[in-house]
Structures are given as C-alpha cells and as structure tokens.
C-alpha cells in the first residue's frame, strides 16, 4: 500500500540524482504533495513559490522554456482550478514541456472537504488542446508513467492521489502514452476504471468471479490520448460496460468512453462517479461508501 503522491516524491528523488536538470516547483504544499522528499535531497533545485499557484505555473513554464525538466505540483483543485488559464495559455498554447503533477484529486482527499476535493480536473484538462492527461493507479505505474512523461514533449497533467492504494502492477508491467492495461479476458462485462478506482474494480472482478461471472477490468491510465481500440474491443467482446471514477460523471472517463462508443460502437455504459454534486468532508473510506465507490456497488449495477 502506498499513495501515488509518495511514489511521485520517490520518483523525483531517484531521477533528480541522475539528472541535474530536473527542477521542482511547489506552492506551499511540499509536505502534502511529497515534493519535500526532493527538496530535502536537492534544495537548490526545489522552488517553493508560496501560496500563488498562477505565478507558480508561469515561473515553472519560464524555467521549462529555458530547457530544464520541470515538475510543478499542488493540489488538483489549485492546479486545474485556480491556475486553469495559466495552464491553457502559458503552458499549452506555447507547447511548454512541463509536467503538472496534481495531487489530492477526487473525494479521496477526505476530511479537507469539497473546497479541496477536485472532481472536475479530468474534464478541465482533457478539453485543453494538446494537453496530455494521465492518471496512475498505484505506485509502480506512477513511476513508469512519470518516466515516459520525461521524454514526451508538451504539457502533461498527471493526476495523483492522497490516499494509500494497493500495488497492482509489477516491474514487468508496461505503460505508454495512449495505452491502457486490461486485466482478464472475461466476456461477461468490462469495468473501465482509473486511478484509485482500479483497485476497487479488481476487487469487484474477484467477487464476481465467485458468482461465476467473468469480467475484465481496464485501467485507462492514459486519459488523453485514450486507448480507443481497447474501448471498442471491450464493447464488442463483453456484454455489460461499466465505468467507475473518483471524478464527476460529467466530463470524466465515463464521458470519454461514451464518446468513443458513440462514435465507433454504440452501446450502453453504466457510469459510476460523482453525480452533479459536490463531495463531502469525511473519512475517505466512508466517503467512498457513500458515493458508491465500492465493489458492492459495482456488483449491484451488474446484478441489476
């Protein structure tokens, strides 16, 4: 069990050791985003811009335009929310090579409540022209995804979480831009998941197997570009389609999968996510129960 933000901190330290051009920006949340792990090792290459996210994005872009390999971090709400136009007009429009690593995405933030729970960032970032959007499901995929981001040009948004999640991958697992990972070959149904919900979907898959139902789980870690072929193949090969995400169902992976289906292989999709409402303050596990991010809730949908 490890949070993806912690894996991000470890990645920065590992890569920072090999490469002096790696620069890290934060906005007074270095402890929470885990960039303080890098700061402790390489204080001269860590820049805390203070509580000013818009300025942080601009400054980080200036550094990136000077040829450095830049990672900028804050909570998803202050990145995709507060600094939206800076990301759009400064980072994306100018095709800046920058890694926007947003932590504390979704209601999994927990006690900090709705003001800090970004449930719109996938939608906000996905719609920006040329932006690449990625969301790892565990510690291993976090490091592998960040690794290929280092070699991808342009702006990238990487959605990370606060809470600890189970490790589901191993050292042999592969990740690429525009890719996805499919668990199982079941034909009874497909569960599309991303980030925190991949682990939950895998639990549901096991439970369903006990009932004699063979499902597959698709980790859509590359949200944009999305793996259209896999989505279409799953629609062709399996009976029931469900998506589950710790994000608004408006503009999240459910919407993205729907778009692909609508264009290429029309089929019903059951979307589990946050309805048109805000999150709530509370323990993350309890919130996940309340909002239906549990294997039991997934199974209800299948059984109905």
């Amino acid at each position: 069990m490890k949070s993806t933000r912690k894996a991000y901190g470890e990645f920065l330290v590992e890569e920072g050791k090999k490469d002096n051009d790696i620069m890290v920006f934060d906005a007074d949340l270095a402890m929470a985003t885990c960039t303080n792990m890098f700061k402790n090792e390489y204080p001269n290459r860590h820049f805390d811009i203070g509580i000013s996210e818009q300025d942080m994005i601009g400054t980080a872009c200036g550094m990136a335009l000077s040829g450095k390999k830049v990672f900028a971090s804050t909570f998803a709400i202050f990145m995709a929310g507060r600094a939206y136009e800076q990301i759009r007009n400064t980072a994306a429009y100018s095709h800046v090579n920058i890694n926007l690593c947003a932590t504390h995405a979704g209601i999994a933030v927990g006690e900090d409540g709705p003001t800090h729970q970004c449930i719109e960032d996938i939608a906000l970032m996905n719609v920006i022209p040329t932006m690449k959007v990625l969301c790892p499901a565990d510690d291993i995929s976090t490091k592998k995804i960040l690794k290929f981001c280092l070699n991808e040009s342009g702006p990238k948004y990487i959605r990370l979480g606060r809470s600890e999640v189970p490790t589901i991958y191993n050292d042999e697992s592969n990740f690429k831009l525009g890719g996805s990972n499919v668990f199982g070959t079941g034909t009874d149904g497909t569960i599309f998941a991303v980030g925190n919900t991949v682990g939950i979907a895998l639990e549901a898959k096991e439970e369903l197997a006990k009932q004699g139902k063979d499902f597959r789980v698709v980790d859509l870690y590359s949200i944009k570009p999305v793996d259209r072929n896999t989505i279409v193949n799953c629609a062709k090969e399996t009976d029931i389609l469900v998506s589950i995400e710790d994000h608004s169902i408006i503009g999240g992976i459910g919407s993205i999968v729907s778009n692909v289906l609508c264009e290429e292989y029309p089929k019903k999709l059951i979307k589990i996510g946050i309805e048109d409402r805000f999150g709530k303050s509370g323990n993350y596990k309890e919130l996940y129960k309340l909002f239906g991010f549990t294997k039991e809730h997934i199974m209800e949908n299948f059984n109905n």
Partner: peptide, 22 residues
Amino acid sequence: MVHFGQGLSIANGMGLAKKISN
C-alpha cells in the same frame, strides 16, 4: 505568446534558470 498578467512569472522562471545555471 504570453497572455496578460502572466509575463513577469515567465520572465522570473527564465531568470531563475539562468541563475541556477550560472
């Protein structure tokens, strides 16, 4: 390239890059 109100932040980033690279 730069949208209003955002220029100085970018200039600062470039200045920082120069500084750190001597």
